[in-house]
Computed example of a mutant assay.
Amino acid sequence: MDFSNIACWIWPLIAGVICGILGYYLRKWTSKENEQQITVDTHDYKADLEDCKRKTASLQADLDACTRKTASLEADLASSESQLNLAKKAPLAATSTASIASSFAAGAATSETVIQNTNTSVPSPSIGIIGVPFDAAAAKGVYGKKRIKEDDLTIVEGIGPKISELFHNHDIKTWAALASTSVEKCQEVLNSGGKRFEIHRPGTWPMQAEMAALGKWAELKKWQDEHDYGKA
């Protein structure tokens, strides 16, 4: 046997086996190192993602706060514009003081006439004003399709369902009762409902209520068509 020939191929074989083993362990070590690096990178990415989520939540909270602040400013602006409109109407109201006073005087005179000449007039639970029996047909004849209910305070220009409810809560439930209520008391009733009711001006409400209590539908409708002092 020629051992020199064996040596020629055995040593490369041994060297190949050794290189294979070293390559296997090198790949395994490199793979483990890469896996660890990927784990570290994944953890960093998750931390960054959580940080972004927290920042997003903080920005959303700031946005919501800005939205609420904007809504509050818009409400304040609307209130200021309403008060400005009232201020612009003030000169007109001043020039019509004599007209309003004469309406009150005419109402008082008519009230005395009704008391003296109408046997069917009935006393109201409130003091100062005596109403006449409610005539739904007469009211409908003046207001047309609008159905008028007895002692419905919303017939008074400037009074809506919410304000009517405020007066009911203060035991002012009839036209006669409202007619006997001072303007100062009307304002107190409005103030009890909060700021959104304070802008209303009740200066003519008792006068309008007196016309309704006395059944003076034509006069009341005419006055309301010519004035808007009851509105905010």
Rank of each mutant, 00 (worst) to 15 (best):
Q208A: 05
T56K: 04
S121Y: 08
A75H: 11
I172S: 03
S192H: 03
V122R: 13
V17D: 00
E184G: 08
A15K: 14
N117K: 10
F167H: 02
P133M: 03
T97R: 13
V132S: 11
I38D: 02
P123T: 11
A7W: 06
T42G: 00
L86P: 03
N117R: 11
S96G: 10
S4Q: 14
D228P: 04
I100H: 08
K216D: 03
D62R: 07
C19R: 09
A65T: 13
L166F: 08
S102G: 07
G230P: 07
A71S: 15
A106W: 04
N5A: 15
K28T: 08
G128M: 04
A179Q: 03
A108K: 11
T154Y: 06
Y25R: 12
E219W: 03
Y25P: 03
S31R: 12
C66W: 09
D225F: 01
K89G: 09
S96I: 04
E210N: 12
E165A: 15
L166Y: 06
G193L: 07
K88W: 11
A98T: 15
R68C: 04
T204M: 04
D48I: 11
C186Y: 08
A106S: 14
F167G: 04
P161E: 02
A137S: 13
G203A: 15
N169M: 07
S79K: 13
E198I: 12
T30R: 12
N169T: 10
R201F: 13
D135P: 06
K195H: 10
I18R: 07
A93L: 15
E188F: 05
E198Q: 15
W223Q: 02
E33P: 01
I163D: 07
Q36A: 05
Y229D: 13
Q36R: 11
L178S: 04
V17K: 01
A139D: 00
E184W: 00
S31E: 07
S102N: 07
I172M: 08
T67G: 04
H200D: 06
K195E: 15
A138I: 05
F104H: 15
K162P: 04
A179I: 05
I10G: 01
T42H: 02
Q60H: 10
E188Y: 03
A232N: 09
Q36C: 06
N5S: 13
Q208Y: 00
A71F: 10
A7Y: 08
G160Q: 00
R27F: 12
G107Y: 00
W205N: 08
Y25K: 06
T204E: 14
D41H: 00
K146L: 13
G16W: 07
S164R: 12
I10A: 14
L49W: 01
D228R: 09
G131L: 05
T56P: 00
S103Q: 10
A109V: 10
R68F: 12
L153T: 04
S99C: 05
S96V: 05
G194R: 02
E50M: 01
F134D: 02
V156E: 05
G158C: 04
N119I: 15
N119T: 15
S99E: 14
A179N: 01
H43Q: 13
M211W: 10
K222V: 04
